[in-house]
Design a protein around this nucleic acid. Structure first.
Length: 482
DNA sequence: TTTTGAGTTGTTCGA
DNA sequence: GTCGAACAACTCAAA
């Protein structure tokens, strides 16, 4: 009889189309699915608070799904190498498999881990899973990685995407005896403060929740209307697949496959599908960038930005985090983030621009807050997004592109519905003033029951002034580099 | 090697 | 209200 195979699961919490799990099942011996709780395996970026909330539930769903197939999830705490070897020893496993990740710390550690386990006599195999293409497979003609999105996108269109999906195994053979396992509830993954109380209103972590989110996006017209509605934060205009993709509850291949199949079947216009698929390739771009430029998780891609005159504005940062900047669209976004673990992407850009360009707070501080509060926190996407906003990343916004929080509110939340939902103290302010209550006549504010500085903050900075300061700072940076 | 065209997401100003 | 131009200079990708 074939010896058992240990499957190390991380950000691939699903049974369908999971290459490592598939390989273990296909080896025809027993399979030992393992999740190891070891912060060290993530380098400087162990899962943040919102991610831990998600993980708790996703692991529970995975365990259920494995039990339905005659298996279960073994959860261990401690050093990854030690625990994998211990689990293998306890079950008589001779081979260990996992799907690859591409964050700098994981790449480095996995390489050492594989060497150490091989040295100890285990057969170790790793699999491509997380991306549509490995980051080292899609390169420019000169063999270097892409630094601009559009050419990468064209390359993906040229090369195409392999979308053959591995079916979920119907049954997974159990070892003769299961090794010890920690209870998922004992991992301490839920926040101790009552913070995530409203998360379940919006999210269903786990593989079946992920499948439903994708079916909904394709079947209910989210993808169809994506290009028109994705920028309106008060609509359900985006797929909200990001946390599911981050935790690997659904594969990017699966998303690509289902969307392109809907086009082939005539259920979806190609013109509608393309902008949606583009976003998946942004995810690929972010991962490729971080893989090839690992220092960017903490340092600007453009080194001249080391000299940028950032400010340690702790009070400004705190006001931003709590949604009390006095700019309604910014505050609405930050409060949506706190209440739901997510923020609409259009608003992410607005709040990020505000922190970085109006308050001149270093982008790393914003990235750290997002890391802790987003259920879809993903190192590659988060890093790229913040560097893009700050102007120090790949394909970065020109320095003069500074979002005006009032204009953005008027353009993308014209009715004020988004602001009113998340900043209820402004609910009765008329549309005309909803995005700049400080400009409203005093009798209008009084009628709306708003006393500025009491019920809702005065703006903590004057945007026009802040814009000029930021422009001057960016300009000096350019002059200094000459 | 050189050249050329292009580059996610904006704002403001003046006609 | 609408429209086009200006806002820098640079890097990137590909011919």
């Amino acid at each position: 009889m074939t010896a058992p195979t240990v499957v190390r699961l991380r950000l691939d919490l699903r049974v369908r189309d999971n290459p490592a799990l598939r390989a273990a099942v296909d080896a025809d011996g027993p399979v030992v699915p393992v999740w190891i709780d070891d912060d060290a395996q993530w380098g400087a970026w162990p899962p943040g608070g919102a991610s831990r909330w998600w993980l708790h539930r996703s692991l529970a769903r995975l365990d259920e799904s494995l039990r339905d197939r005659g298996s279960r999830l073994i959860v261990r705490r401690g050093d990854v190498a030690t625990e994998l070897a211990a689990v293998a020893a306890a079950t008589g496993a001779e081979s260990i498999v996992w799907n690859r990740l591409y964050e700098p710390a994981t790449v480095e550690r996995d390489k050492a881990l594989k060497a150490a386990l091989t040295e100890r006599g285990f057969a170790v195999r790793t699999f491509a899973d997380r991306l549509l293409h490995e980051p080292w497979d899609v390169l420019k003609a000169d063999g270097t990685p892409y630094r601009v999105f559009t050419p990468l996108w064209r390359a993906y269109q040229r090369v195409g995407v392999e979308t053959e999906l591995a079916a979920a195994p119907r049954a997974i053979a159990a070892p003769e005896a299961w090794p010890d396992s920690v209870a998922i509830d004992d991992l301490g993954f839920d926040p101790t403060i009552d913070w995530a109380a409203r998360f379940p209103d919006r999210w269903t972590p786990g593989e079946s929740g992920a499948s439903r989110a994708l079916s909904h996006a394709i079947g209910e017209g989210v993808v169809e209307r994506y290009d028109d509605e994705r920028d309106q934060p008060d609509r359900y205009g985006t797929s909200r697949l990001s946390p599911h993709l981050h935790f690997g509850e659904i594969s990017a291949r699966n998303v690509w496959h289902d969307v392109t199949r809907a086009v082939t079947n005539g259920d979806l216009a190609e013109d509608a599908a393309t902008p949606f698929l583009r976003q998946l390739v942004w995810r690929e771009f972010a991962h490729s960038l971080l893989y090839h430029e690992p220092q960017t998780e903490s340092e600007p891609l453009r080194p001249e930005f080391e000299a940028f005159p950032w400010r340690d504005d702790d009070a400004g940062l705190a006001a931003w985090q709590r949604g009390k900047t006095g700019y309604p669209i910014v505050d609405a976004g930050m409060r949506e983030l706190w209440a739901t673990g997510w923020m609409h992407n259009r608003v992410r850009m607005v709040v990020a621009s505000f922190l970085v360009k109006d308050l001149l707070v270093p982008w790393q501080r914003g990235a750290a807050w997002f890391w802790d509060t987003l259920v879809d926190a993903d190192l590659a996407n988060n890093t790229m997004g913040w560097q893009w906003t700050a102007g120090c990343g790949a394909d970065a916004a020109p320095f003069f592109r500074i979002y005006n929080p009032v204009r953005q509110g008027e353009r993308f939340d014209a009715s004020g519905a988004y602001v009113r939902r998340w900043v209820p103290e402004l609910a009765d302010v008329p549309d005309k003033w909803i995005h700049e209550p400080w400009s409203a006549p005093s009798d209008v504010l009084a009628a709306a029951g708003v006393r500025l500085g009491h019920d809702y903050p005065e703006p903590i900075v004057d945007h026009a002034l802040a814009r000029d300061v930021a422009l001057a700072s960016y300009k000096r940076l350019g002059d200094g580099a000459d």
